[in-house]
């Protein structure tokens, strides 16, 4: 592996006095456990979203033509594509934030977290301002609230497509929103000097969470917007 080891003996920041919780034998065990727990949580996230993917797969299989028509008609791939790039970049910046913690550079953590959050907010603003609000105005809403009139497919599959589009993207958007708050909390903790080479577990787990949000979007984007 290409993992690098560097000497950081000359740093004596306040966070270096990190003490692990009493029921752990050592800090390494605690760190590994926190990471394993986070990965298990990410596994549950993937399985939760698999419900949307499964519903999508089933209806894409049952109604391939109308599904494609609805996708082309209701969704603009340029918005989805832009948001994909934004999320990919934010994933990179949060990796850089963790790198900052490992190198014990407080401001590197902070600026990268800020960049991540700006990306996340951009995603949400684009999503809501350029997609959700126009759609709500036009009445392109799930079944009970659908007032658009005659859709492109001429069938009720419009409702179905929009139903899955709304619940899947809204659930994903909620995850992004939660991410914004957690990353904001990380920024506060950074400024308090709580992250350093020995204690960036919380930061790393936040990063893992943020990446899974990214990965889910990587799948949602082509499925909903492109094909």
């Amino acid at each position: 592996m290409t993992s690098v080891s560097v000497e950081t003996t000359n740093t004596a920041e306040p966070h270096e006095t990190y003490v692990h919780q009493h029921h752990w034998r050592n800090a390494d065990d605690e760190k590994d456990a926190a990471k394993l727990g986070m990965w298990l949580f990410l596994g549950t996230e993937a399985l939760m979203f698999s419900g949307f993917f499964c519903a999508y797969a089933v209806f894409r299989m049952l109604y391939p033509d109308t599904w494609k028509q609805a996708s082309d008609y209701y969704l603009d791939w340029r918005i989805g594509g832009f948001n994909t790039l934004v999320l990919v970049i934010s994933s990179f910046t949060i990796v850089q934030a963790i790198r900052g913690a490992q190198l014990n550079k407080k401001m590197m953590i902070f600026w990268n977290l800020l960049a991540t959050n700006i990306c996340a907010l951009t995603f949400l603003v684009v999503k809501i301002g350029w997609e959700y609000i126009p759609k709500i105005r036009a009445g392109e809403l799930p079944g009970a609230f659908f007032t658009y009139g005659h859709g492109p497919t001429g069938t009720t599959h419009d409702h179905l497509f929009l139903g899955i589009y709304w619940v899947a993207t809204a659930t994903h958007g909620l995850h992004v929103l939660i991410g914004v708050f957690v990353i904001g909390w990380c920024m506060i903790r950074t400024m308090k000097g709580q992250f350093g080479p020995k204690n960036y577990m919380f930061l790393e787990n936040t990063g893992l969470y943020w990446h899974i949000v990214d990965v889910i979007w990587i799948f949602l984007f082509p499925m909903l917007y492109l094909v």
């Binding site: 519903a55 809403l141 799930p142 079944g143 009720t156 599959h157 409702h159 139903g163 709304w166």
Partner: peptide, 18 residues
């Protein structure tokens, strides 16, 4: 819950669901 509140149609045969 979404089906009951928004009628997203995934489980509703009237909308093509199953």
């Amino acid at each position: 819950i979404f089906e009951r509140t928004f009628r997203i149609g995934v489980f509703d045969p009237a909308l093509g669901g199953d």
